[in-house]
Design a protein around this nucleic acid. Structure first.
Length: 494
RNA sequence: GCGGAAAUAGCUCAGCUGGUAGAGCAUCAGUUUCCCAAACUGAAGGCCGCGGGUUCGAAUCCCGUUUUCCGCUCCA
């Protein structure tokens, strides 16, 4: 990471805090690691990103509908999805080499080594001891075994100094039921997708949906990351915008490619330079996928995943059919042109598009942030401006009386009252006009409307544009249409 | 989780080898100002991250702890 990009990232973080976008959670109690709060401007920007996504996915597709499933779900769902068994690993560190390993894998390797050496008795004994320890979640015993069998650090020749074995759990658990002892352990969802899968037939039947169709959802998910860092890139509590698209088996490849392209277009429509984005293909696929691409963004610290497009096959629905013993099949009455018969009953294949809202938020801030040098020969000058797309900007317009006397504030307030039904506005009368322009630049407000003495005479005002700093004089009665056109979703979705 | 660095006013930072806590910006009350920040007057704001120790005396030295940043590690 070069110094300048390092600086950029730091500046964006402090800007985000200073102007009410993102605060550290529980800051007055020294904070809570990897948890963040969105402030007064952050929540507006975040909501606007959600709206853009929801409109483009749900409103613009007549075969995609949304749901809002609960964060609490039946614990068996996470057994079916593979999260319970797949994400609770015993971890151990070597203090000498500073490397971290999975304790069970170190032991497995040792067992394999015993086998190749022909010491099958030793191998079998260790296998049994390890299985017992794992089953009983006896973490100290795992450490004992590692030390007793003098397991070396695979990446270091020095004698290892092992830490305690710690359990790494992906999921947060909590109790349902008011009475201790009679309660049941459930999990905070680690992904929103399962809420869609377990509801897919409810939606399909109540909405009379025909394949192919999609179900969209925006919601919080929770993951206990080993190391959560880099600001809001990796948070313990985060928000996803997911859409699961249910398709006829055999057609998944086409739909996968279609969504891959559609989703990148969604990103680029915001005006982000194309070279900032790239696809990353997963070579090693997760157990449920038959194809997977990430859309990555060029963050100051390198390309990182923002969105994943995964072909999840029929894995999840099949798992739920098995675990719930309820049919997850869809009856497809359409006639297969090849056989002349209906497609009939099948478990649909699923294409998933899943975007991290918090990462999208950060990406948007980084992309928009600019420290512009406005120096002339006479004097130095600069401004910090967030060049947010007008549709995403937290405040659409600010209204200023040029001075706070001579009836200008009254006139400005009157204009504001007419417009605030349709737009999120700010009114400011304090400080020099230039200072107020700069403050609005800093939070990305695309337009500033200034009321001056001429306004009192002919009802005209000036509109000052954030990006060019150019001004034009317009009639105050036309503002609703002018601003409405400039911030219209048509500009993004049309 | 390991190693390194940092933590002083809302923000950016001074504060030397221990001796009663400082500036600029921001904030608030005024003045000035007819279109692009940092003009004038005044006010307010800090248990120097938290806890302990050394000392007559600690923002300053030592230990612990929390948080953040960087590197490693981990990552569906």
């Amino acid at each position: 990471m070069s110094n300048s990009t390092d600086e950029l990232f730091k500046n964006v973080i402090s800007h985000a805090k200073e102007y009410g976008f993102v605060f550290q959670s529980s800051e007055i109690y020294d904070g809570l690691s990897a948890v963040y709060d969105y402030g007064q401007n952050g929540v507006e920007l975040k909501n606007n990103i959600k709206t853009y996504w929801w409109k483009s996915m749900v409103q613009m597709h007549d075969n995609i509908v949304g749901i809002d499933s609960a964060i609490f779900m039946h614990p068996t769902i996470w057994k079916a999805s593979g999260h319970v068994d797949g994400f609770s690993d015993p971890m151990i560190d070597n203090k000498v080499s500073k490397k971290r390993y999975r304790a069970d894998q170190l032991l497995e390797d040792k067992i394999a080594a015993y086998d190749t050496e022909g010491k099958t008795d030793k191998a079998e004994l260790l296998q049994t001891e390890m299985d017992t320890a794992l089953k009983n979640e006896d973490l100290p015993r795992l450490r004992e075994l590692i030390i007793a069998h003098e397991i070396a650090d695979p990446n270091s020749k020095d004698k290892p100094d092992w830490t305690e074995v710690r359990q790494f759990n992906l999921m947060f658990s909590t109790q349902v039921g008011a009475i201790a002892g009679e309660s049941e352990t459930i999990y905070l969802r680690p992904e929103t997708a399962q809420g869609i899968f377990v509801n897919y037939l409810n939606v399909q039947k109540s909405g009379r949906m025909k394949i192919p169709f999609g179900i969209a959802q925006i919601g919080k998910a929770f993951r206990n990351e080993v190391v959560a860092r880099q600001f809001i890139i990796r948070m313990r509590e985060f928000e996803q915008m997911e859409m699961q698209y249910f398709v006829r088996p055999g057609t998944q490849k086409d739909w996968f490619n279609k969504w891959k392209e559609t989703r990148l277009k969604w990103h680029l429509a915001l005006g982000t330079p194309e070279e900032k984005y790239r696809y990353h293909e997963h070579v090693k696929l997760a157990h449920y996928a038959d194809a997977a691409f990430d859309i990555e963004f060029d963050f100051p610290f390198g390309f990182k995943e923002v969105e994943g497009i995964h072909s999840r096959t029929d894995f999840d629905l099949s798992q739920h059919e098995q675990f719930s013993r309820k049919k997850m099949q869809y009856f497809d009455p359409e006639v297969d042109p090849e056989t002349g018969k209906p497609f009939g009953n099948y478990i649909p294949y699923v294409i998933e598009t899943s975007i991290g809202l918090d990462r999208m938020f950060l990406l948007t801030m980084i992309n928009a942030f600019e420290e512009e040098d406005l120096s002339t020969e006479e004097r130095q000058d600069s401004r910090t401006v967030l060049r947010l797309h007008p549709c995403l900007a937290p405040v659409k317009a600010a209204i200023f009386p040029l001075t706070k006397k001579d009836g200008l504030p009254e006139k400005a307030t009157e204009i504001m009252d007419k417009l605030k039904v349709n737009f999120n506005l700010q009114y400011e009368e304090k400080d020099a006009i230039g200072k107020r322009y700069r403050r609005q630049d800093a939070i990305g407000t695309p337009f500033c409307i200034t009321v001056d003495h001429q306004s009192l005479e002919d009802n005209t005002v000036t509109i000052r544009h954030r990006d060019t700093m150019a001004q034009e004089r317009v009639n105050a009665d036309d503002l609703e249409k002018i601003i409405g056109d400039l911030v219209s979703w048509k500009n993004l979705l049309g």
